[in-house]
């Protein structure tokens, strides 16, 4: 906490967040001589010495190790191009497509991933020119065959995941679906009550800035699904919109 702003305060670009060298600017903030100012419209978040501003809107900006869902747009000779619902498109090289060796002379790449396929992948590298590379090698990373893709605002993703993935877990329990939440704002839902899960995701997106959303969603889900799930230990309500890093790794499966 600095003397200029409180944690979770709504700020506009240009607002002074802290003075002096005590703090460091994180995402959504920048240093202007000895002042740290906000660069986006969002909520202030203090983490140790770093001050960041969690944006309330905006496109996804690819970051290393983020789990995302990409749609194949082009099949090349030794790579694929993917639309990752971001400012930049992504590339996947043959070596990153599968754990098995793919001989480009013998196999057509389109037989691995064709145009229009949705692939659960992970950002492998983002270079200084913002060339983005993704990989489909890793636990849980694969092509999806059925189910539903729901597009939401990428800024609202941390809220859909919830603290320690509490929100996705809850939706999955009530709707009996399988879900994967990509950091880029694409949510994959499959099996069970897909419609209700989609509704729930869109509801969270619309009300992401409100406090006490988990309880509200619990009520909504139990009413819509006609189910009650007993929680033995009462869970503390996660107040923060997003702490970012720790739940980021959380994959819906």
């Amino acid at each position: 906490m600095s003397e200029n702003v409180e944690n979770r305060q709504l700020v506009v670009p240009g607002k002074i967040l802290a003075k002096g060298m005590e703090f460091l600017p994180g995402d959504g903030a920048y240093r202007d001589q000895d002042e740290i100012r906000a660069s986006v419209l969002g909520l202030v978040n203090f983490k140790g010495r770093a001050i960041k501003v969690i944006p309330l809107n905006g496109k996804y900006l690819p970051k290393r190790d983020d789990p995302v869902i990409g749609i194949i747009t082009e099949v090349g000779y030794n790579s694929w191009n993917l639309d990752i619902n971001a400012t930049y498109t992504a590339r996947m090289l043959v070596g990153d497509a599968s754990d098995r060796y793919i001989d480009t002379n013998r196999h057509k790449l389109a037989s691995v991933f064709g145009v229009g396929d949705a692939v659960i992948c992970q950002i492998k590298k983002v270079d200084e020119n913002m060339a983005v590379f993704v990989t489909a090698r890793g636990p849980g990373l694969r092509k999806v065959h059925d189910g539903k893709l729901v597009y939401v605002n990428a800024a609202k993703i941390p809220r859909i995941i919830g603290k320690g993935a509490s929100m996705v877990k809850m939706i999955k329990e009530y709707t009996e679906t399988r879900m994967f939440v990509g950091q880029n704002g694409i949510v994959w839902i499959q099996g069970g009550n897909e419609e209700l899960a989609e509704k729930a995701v869109l509801k969270i997106e619309a009300e992401a800035h409100l406090v006490g959303l988990t309880d509200k969603m619990e009520q909504f889900l139990s009413k819509e699904s006609g189910k009650t799930i007993n929680r033995d230990e009462p869970k503390p309500e996660p107040e923060a919109v997003a702490e970012g890093t720790e739940e980021k790794k959380e994959e819906g499966e």
Binding site: P13, G14, G28, Y30, R37, S39, V40, G58
Partner: peptide, 11 residues
């Protein structure tokens, strides 16, 4: 621009 979440130094 601010509404679109684009980083700006100021309004």
């Amino acid at each position: 621009l601010a509404d679109a979440g684009i980083p700006m130094r100021d309004l």
